[in-house]
Amino acid sequence: MKSLQSIIETHPFFKGLDEPYLELVTGCASNVRFNAGEFIYRQDEEADTFYIIRQGKVSLEICQPGHEPMVLQTVSEGEILGWAWIVPPYHWKFDAQAVELTRTIAFDGKCLRNKCQEDHGLGYELLSRLLPVVGKTMDASRLQLMNVYGIKSSEGV
């Protein structure tokens, strides 16, 4: 069976991370699986965990009264789930629900934060891996906002 550290170092998010840092983050990690339909976290709960996804699919949802829950994004194998654990006040903004059986590595958010605080080198490594994900998510949101596929009737030929 693969060790936790070897699973972590082969995940795209941590790819190329130096050995000492790998050991540091592995110290905060544990194997966690979610069954289909299971909520991983809920909006407004404390964001105390950072997940990397090994297998499966998670949907990020938002629900407003009187409406069906809306899925805004799905993340799956090779991707990460959540960055609220590193941004004060450490609260989730959406609901995260496993769409199918999902295997993750979960990192204790507080543990990671403390280690980043103690070793800014690790903090820089983590943030420079997180920021592109945040950036891409923002780009994607803007694209989704544009509703690029939508042609209103009477606008076409």
């Binding site: 949802e61 899925v71 989704q144």
Partner: peptide
């Protein structure tokens, strides 16, 4: 781009 929960 978006879906309800019936979409897996």
């Amino acid at each position: 781009d978006n879906a309800d929960r019936t979409w897996s």
